[in-house]
Design a binder for these strands. Structure first.
Length: 275
DNA sequence: ACGAGAACCTGTTTGC
DNA sequence: TGCAAACAGGTTCTCG
C-alpha cells in the first residue's frame, strides 16, 4: 500500500476532482473487503455530496453532507482510480465498488488482496472510531519532535524499525519509508527503540519528515499495483536508497546493502553507514 | 503489558 | 518449461 505519501497524494487528487460532487449511484459487488461493508451502503451514499477530504494516518476521510464521514483505507494493494462511465461492467475482476457522480465521473475501488477497509461513521464522533482511536503522532504534524519520539520509544526493547511502523506510536510510516528514514538517519534498524540517544531521535525525526515530504512532492511513489487517483504514476520510487536494493551498493559508501527480516517484513540497510 | 508471529487474500517473482 | 515457494505497500488477532 500506499504509505502516508501515497495516501496523501490520492486524497489530494480526489479532493481536486470530487469535492462538491454528489454520488448518483454506487455499485457494490461484494459484501466485504477486509471487513463487512456497512449495511445498506449503496442506499446510504446515493444522493450524498462529497464535501471535504482529509487524511488521518493512512486513512482517507470524506465528509458527507449528512453528518457522516466515509473512511477509506487501501490496505496493501488497494487503488482508487478516477475514470468515467460506465459503472458496468467493472474495469477488472477486483473492482469491488464503483461510485458514479453527478458530473459523470466514476471512482473505482480496486483491490486484489482485499485488505482494504471502508466504513461510515458520524463526523462529530470520528475520533472514537475503532480504526482511529489508538493512532499515534502524525509525522508531518507539529508534535512530531525528537523529544516526543524518544519519550514514545522509552523503555521499548523492540527493534526501532518495528517501533517506527507501530501505528499506535507514529502513523503513516510503512515498510518502505521506515527503511528509507533509518538509512538517512544512519540508525541501524535492529537497534532497540528505547536506546535512542537524544541526538539520534532528532536525526530520525528529521529523516522521516524529509523522506515523507519528498515522496509527497514527487507525487507519491508507485509500486506495481499502485495507481494514483488521477491515473498518473508517482515517481519517488526512483529515489529509494535502500528499499528493494539488497545486495546493491550503498549510495553513500558502496558497501553491499543487506536484507534482514523483522516481524515478518523485509528490511534493507547499510551495514557500514547505519549503526 | 509487550512483542513476535500468524492470519487475512491474490498476484507476481524466484528458484529448483 | 513447470511447479512450488517466497514475497509484496497493512492491520488485527492470538499466543507466549
Amino acid at each position: 500500500m500506499p504509505e502516508l505519501p501515497e495516501v496523501e497524494t490520492v486524497m489530494r487528487a480526489l479532493a481536486a476532482k470530487l469535492a462538491g460532487r454528489r454520488v448518483v449511484e454506487l455499485v457494490q459487488r461484494r459484501p466485504d473487503l477486509r471487513f463487512a461493508l456497512p449495511a445498506g451502503l449503496p442506499g446510504r451514499l446515493a444522493g450524498r455530496r462529497f464535501d471535504r477530504f482529509g487524511r488521518r494516518a493512512k486513512y482517507i476521510r470524506v465528509d458527507l453532507d449528512d453528518g457522516h464521514t466515509l473512511l477509506l483505507h487501501l490496505g496493501m494493494s488497494g487503488r482508487l482510480v478516477l475514470d468515467g462511465p460506465p459503472l458496468e461492467p467493472p474495469s477488472g475482476p477486483h473492482e469491488h465498488l464503483s461510485f458514479g457522480f453527478d458530473d459523470g465521473s466514476v471512482l473505482r475501488f480496486v483491490d486484489a488482496r482485499r485488505f482494504g477497509m471502508l466504513d461510515l461513521w458520524p463526523s462529530d464522533r470520528l475520533a472514537e472510531h475503532r480504526w482511529l482511536a489508538h493512532l499515534g503522532l502524525e509525522p508531518l504534524g507539529p508534535d512530531f519532535t525528537g523529544r516526543r519520539l524518544r519519550a514514545l520509544f522509552a523503555g521499548r526493547r523492540s527493534a526501532i524499525k518495528s517501533a517506527l511502523m507501530d501505528q499506535r506510536l507514529v502513523v503513516g510510516v510503512g515498510n518502505i519509508y521506515a527503511c528509507e528514514a533509518l538509512f538517512r538517519a544512519r540508525i541501524h534498524p535492529s537497534r532497540p527503540a528505547g536506546a535512542l540517544a537524544v541526538e539520534e531521535a532528532g536525526r530520525l525525526v528529521r529523516a522521516v519528515r524529509t523522506v515523507l515530504r519528498a515522496a509527497i512532492d514527487a507525487g507519491g511513489s508507485s509500486l506495481r499495483d499502485y495507481v494514483q487517483a488521477d491515473g498518473e504514476l508517482g515517481n519517488f520510487q526512483s529515489d529509494f536508497r535502500v528499499y528493494g536494493r539488497a545486495g546493491l551498493p550503498c549510495v553513500v559508501c558502496g558497501a553491499a546493502l543487506v536484507r534482514l527480516v523483522q516481524t515478518g517484513r523485509s528490511t534493507v540497510s547499510c551495514p557500514h553507514c547505519q549503526r
